[in-house]
Amino acid sequence: MRLTLKIWRQAGPTVAGRLVEYIEDHVSPDMSFLEMLDVVNEGLIKKGEDAIAFDSDCREGICGMCSLVVNGVPHGPDRGTTVCQLHMRRFKDGDTITIEPWRAAAFPVVKDLVVDRGAFDRIIAAGGYVSFNCGGAPDGNAIPIPKDIADVAMDSAACIGCGACVAACKNASAHLFMSAKISQLALLPQGQPERYRRVTAMVAQADAEGFGSCSNEGECEAVCPKEIPISNIARMTREYVKAALTASK
């Protein structure tokens, strides 16, 4: 296949970027999208030109590192798929593909298609855990957890922290990301003692990072590679309201 690629190039965080056009002739339908970019880069490297920077690691859809907006859609056209799992058989010979980084004020561009998602780590650091020091844990079977609850908690826990939800949202809201972790821990007995402190702290941190609010359009759910449902946001909102109403101070 022959493709025309319009790829965002930006030398660094403080300089302006622009779309640069590349023609790639040697694309096989069995390639993954990132392998196609590898081929483009190999061509650039052989010519001594600066390769296109993009993030990826596991290349099997679980690490959450890859982060490309393909033709305006985070992770590209396939539902429930990270861009590393998107295959070129999804495209046709002669197609033009535009490739951009996540765009959100809280995810500044580092270079080309690479952004800084440190804000997500800081949201987790604010409270996305069970405060429990290693050692002295009770037996794993001491707390029975109904299977249906454990299953819903697992659905929420499946979030890979890629940030596509933010990139898709017109408000650049981190609600889907946050709510997945808040839901998981609010559903499980282990998360109860810090349930309200957690939601308050994480939402405050997200606000401080510059993520926007939720206006219920569901773009996040539509692009989420792990298909985390928007019902998590509803649960988070309930948790947040309950936290506000039951606050001791």
């Binding site: 855990y129 069970v130 429990f132 290693c134 050692g135 844990a137 009770p138 037996d139 794993g140 079977n141 707390i143 029975p144 957890i145 109904p146 299977k147 454990a150 299953d151 908690a153 697992m154 826990a157 998981q184 821990l185 499980l188 282990q190 998360g191």
Partner: peptide, 22 residues
Amino acid sequence: VNIIDQCVAQGVPFAREYGGLL
């Protein structure tokens, strides 16, 4: 055996049987 206990305490959502056990 300690690892499983530790991870359950952290809220790792291990698969459960209908009776609620691991």
